[in-house]
Structure formats: C-alpha cells, structure tokens
Design a binder for these strands. Sequence first.
DNA 1: CGGCGTCCTCAGCGCCCTCTCAGCCTCGAT
DNA 2: ATCGAGGCTGAGAGGGCGCTGAGGACGCCG
Lengths: 218, 218
Amino acid sequence: MRLLVVEDESRLAAALQRGLQAEGFAVDVAATGPAGLDAARHGGYDAMILDVMLPGLSGYEVVRRLRAEEHWLPVLMLSAKDGEYDQADGLDCGADDYLTKPFSYVVLLARLRALLRRGAPERPTVLAVGDLTLDPARRRVTRADAEVDLTAREFALLDYLMRRPGEVVSKTELLDHVWDAGMDTAPNVVEVYVGYLRRKIGRERLETVRGAGYRLAT
Amino acid sequence: MRLLVVEDESRLAAALQRGLQAEGFAVDVAATGPAGLDAARHGGYDAMILDVMLPGLSGYEVVRRLRAEEHWLPVLMLSAKDGEYDQADGLDCGADDYLTKPFSYVVLLARLRALLRRGAPERPTVLAVGDLTLDPARRRVTRADAEVDLTAREFALLDYLMRRPGEVVSKTELLDHVWDAGMDTAPNVVEVYVGYLRRKIGRERLETVRGAGYRLAT
DNA sequence: CGGCGTCCTCAGCGCCCTCTCAGCCTCGAT
DNA sequence: ATCGAGGCTGAGAGGGCGCTGAGGACGCCG
C-alpha cells in the first residue's frame, strides 16, 4: 500500500512517515500544496493524507483540483481548526474523511484503514504517469490528452507497467502477469509488444534496461 | 434544514438523530414504512434518510409511492445488501443516492450534504446519455426525442449499459446481470442483442472493445 | 388452430489480433 | 576493432473473436 502524506510541518510529517512505515505502508511526503497535487496526480498512491494549511495551495484546493481532473484517490484531511464549517468545507471539496488536530495516531490509523478498505470513492482510479493516463474501467488511454487506440494485449501490458512507474520490470515478470502464466510463449512476444506500444505512446516513454527488463519513464 | 430519518433499528436511529442534530439539522425519526411515508408527505422536510428493510412497507415502496404522488424530496437510501441489483433497484424507484451498511458516518454526512446542495430532483429519475434517454419507471426509450421500441431484453441491456456510460462492460458481466446469473446461456446471445440494439439506437453509439466488452459512447 | 412476437441457438464468415520466425541492429566486454 | 549476446522489427500464418441471417421453441392472442 502506497501512501502520500502532504504536510508542511516537517516534524509531524516525519513522525507520520515513520509511524506509517512501521505499519507496512510505503510513504512519500510532500511539503507544499503544488508538490502534493503533482505527486497525487502521477503517483499511483492508494490514499492521501492531506493537511489543510499548506504553502502554495490549500488542502481544499488540492482535493478540488484532483476531483476536477477525475482522480478518485481516497483523501483523509487534517486540520487544526475544528469549527463545523471547516469540516463541511473539506467534505464538500471531495475529501473522504476528516480529522482535526490534535488527533490520536491510533484514530488516524483506524480511519485510514477504513478508507483503504472502502477503496477509491465511486469511480475506479485513473492511472497517470507523465502525460499518459490509463482508465481501467473505460479502457481508455490518452497521451497528452489525445486518445490512443490499443489492442487488448497492448492495454494489459501498459496497465501493468503503469502500476509500477519508474521501476524496472523484467521480461519474465511481464510474461507471468500480462500473458498467461504457464503458457510457454516465447519471451520474444514481450519485445514485440513493447515495440508496438512504443510506436503508440512514444518511443522515449518506455526504456530498455539491458539484461534486466523495461522501465516506464516518469 | 429539516431531515426525516426512517429507520427501525432504534439504536441506529437514535445515533443518527444525535449526530445529525449536532451538525445543526432538525431531525425527526419514523420507525415504520407507513409512518415514514406519512411524515414525508406532510412534513416539509429538506431530505430523507430511508432504510430499505422496514416493517409495514419497504423503503423501495416508500420512495415509489412518494414519487408517484409527485413528491420530489431528496432521498438517501440505506441498505444492508450490497448487490448491484439492489442498488439499481433503489435508484430505479426514485432514490437519489444510496449507501450500503455498514457505512461511515462521515460518508453519510458528505453524501447528505451533496444531496442538499443539489436540491430536490427536478424530474423523476431518467437516465440520459447523449441524445438517448431511458425512463426506468415508464419503460420508455427515446433517441433524439423520437421514441424507440425495445423488447424487454433489449431494454434491460440498454438499461444496464446506460448506468455505466463510457465504461467498458464485459460480456460475462452482462450475462450475469441482464440475463439470469447461473443460466448457462451461450455468450453469443449478448452479441446477438447488441446487434439488435445497434439497429435501433444507432450503430455508432455502442462500441465494441475487442477482447474486453462493449462501451456506450458518451 | 394459426398468426405473431420474443428469445435464443447455431453455423458460417470475415477480419483483426496475436504470436512466431528470421534477420538485422545495438551495446558492452575484451 | 571484433565478437557475441541481447534486443528490435517486418512479414506473415493462424486462429480467436465478433457479427449476422436463418430458424426452432415457446407463449400469447384472436
């Protein structure tokens, strides 16, 4: 499970990161509104913990923009204020849950788990890496807002790669997951389909790591 | 803001009442279907939270009757079931939103606020995608304001697709939901009925996504 | 009983996708 | 510079997938 923490008080951010990592989450931290928004857009996170008071862009605004762009990442908002209005505002913007500071770490964890269990709100997540987006439900892929037409196999391959952006994925792993495991297909198919994909999404977006596999450029 | 909660489990009803009152709502509670229907008819409420399982009259029936009498009060339905059919049924009857138990209180609040913000539903629930409209209650379909004559099966298929516009729906999913699950009908029926539908609603509105399913063009 | 409408099966057909193969290119080591 | 392994790609075969027309089964109505 990958989490994104957007919090500008560095001590709190570090504490959250340490605590959540101890629970087995992979945690990235952003310290400003714009940085958080950017990370959320491109990151493939399972949930986001978002402070309201942020430099650059308020937490409210971050969620609002995310939702406007059809990103349905679960968002847990944190705020120092405790008026009812703030809470309503946060939820109105599209946050999924709300916690007021100071909060107990245990409560945070409980709410977070509930959020993750519930999964993404309403719509399935749209994967986004760079200017590529992939919508599993709609089976649509866009590159710089232009729709890209993919066959089933190409789509499955890109889907798998986009869930691990920046990581090197080996050919055998792709064979196991994108092609039927157990099928004795020649490993060359992967190369062939990587070729097809490159022609459609842009050659430079899919790097070859000689002897290791392929990597989707972030 | 005045709310009506119709719920027969008294502990849940009391909890909702207390919680919502703390948010500044005026909350009345009814414990049976008939009592709820009566209160909704005469009450001047801004919204209604309605359980499905009720003594006397089911939640479905309550909404159906309200709508039949031209009361357009926003209704948020609660149900312990979570099958897609139930959800579709609830929305078919004229409910405006739907929540399955167990639900988080925060989510309830968020949905409720969204409902109130949206205001009373202008019209009975009619699905619309592009120039297609489908009225579940009247069993009517129009295409560019011209009525389209569909058989029961064709209607059910279009109904299912119009609830997920733009998404790819697989053949097996259609078989499970539009045809009776468990029936071992040949998957080819889907293709056949897609063919029929295309002739009636326009070929280009129903795309084939090879290897994945069908998609209703938005 | 015969006509009608709906639902479903079946078989044939056409096309797009998938995968294989062989030859060529690229990279890195020596 | 040379060589080998790994990676790339164009061509093409085949088969799977989806579409369609024909027709049988069934229920409903006159």
